[in-house]
Simulated assay, not measured.
Amino acid sequence: MDITLRPVHGSDLPVFFRQSNDPDALRMAAFTAEDPADRDAFDALWARIRTSPGIVARTVLADGDVVGHAAVHGEPGGREVTYWIDRAYWGRGIATAALRGLLAEVGERPLHARVAADNAASLRVLERCGFEVSARTTAYAPARGAEIGELALTLGG
């Protein structure tokens, strides 16, 4: 499978919106928008993402199909990676390949990531890409409506 990254196009947004409303994916990600079904909030968020010079956002393609997105955002020294892969493509190494591609493009370090403590698959992706657990805490997870365990990870620095 050929995994590539490219800048986000407006035509990707309906796919991202559909992906961000998958109940199983929401539960797994845990730390999501308060109301993922709010299309106006989604569009406003992506308008900010696409126009911010400090955010590197990429569409993830698998054999040419839009399967998710990956990004780096935040202030220097505290920049964070994030990614979302369509549940239909989980377990195929796409998230790892996409994150590796993003990390090759964004050379600054340190970079940070956060993951629900029980999201073993995402934790594996981050660890395969060189991130190490740097803190354990609890935080409110909107997708679960409760405080849950969260891991903070760091790459470099």
Rank of each mutant, 00 (worst) to 15 (best):
W84K: 07
I85H: 07
I85Y: 06
R87V: 04
R87Y: 01
A88F: 10
A88Q: 11
A88H: 14
Y89A: 11
Y89R: 14
W90N: 08
W90P: 06
W90H: 12
W90Q: 06
G91E: 12
G91W: 13
G91D: 12
R92T: 06
R92H: 10
R92S: 08
G93P: 05
G93R: 01
G93Q: 04
G93F: 00
G93A: 08
G93M: 01
I94D: 10
I94W: 10
A95R: 13
A95T: 13
A95L: 14
T96Q: 10
T96C: 10
T96M: 07
T96D: 06
T96A: 14
A97D: 00
A98S: 06
A98G: 05
A98N: 00
A98V: 05
L99Y: 12
L99R: 11
R100K: 10
R100Q: 06
G101V: 04
G101T: 04
G101Q: 01
G101C: 05
G101H: 02
L102R: 07
L102V: 09
L102A: 10
L103Q: 03
L103D: 00
L103A: 05
A104Q: 04
A104I: 00
A104T: 06
E105C: 15
G107R: 09
G107F: 08
E108W: 10
E108R: 07
E108K: 07
R109K: 04
R109A: 01
R109C: 04
P110N: 11
P110V: 12
H112N: 00
H112W: 03
A113T: 07
A113P: 03
A113R: 02
R114Q: 15
R114P: 09
R114F: 15
R114M: 15
R114I: 15
V115R: 01
V115I: 08
V115T: 06
A116T: 11
A117F: 03
A117Y: 03
D118L: 10
D118F: 11
D118P: 04
D118M: 07
N119W: 06
N119P: 06
N119Y: 03
N119G: 04
A120D: 12
A120F: 08
A120E: 12
A121T: 08
A121L: 11
A121F: 11
S122F: 06
S122I: 01
S122N: 03
L123M: 11
L123I: 13
L123C: 10
L123Q: 11
L123N: 09
L123P: 02
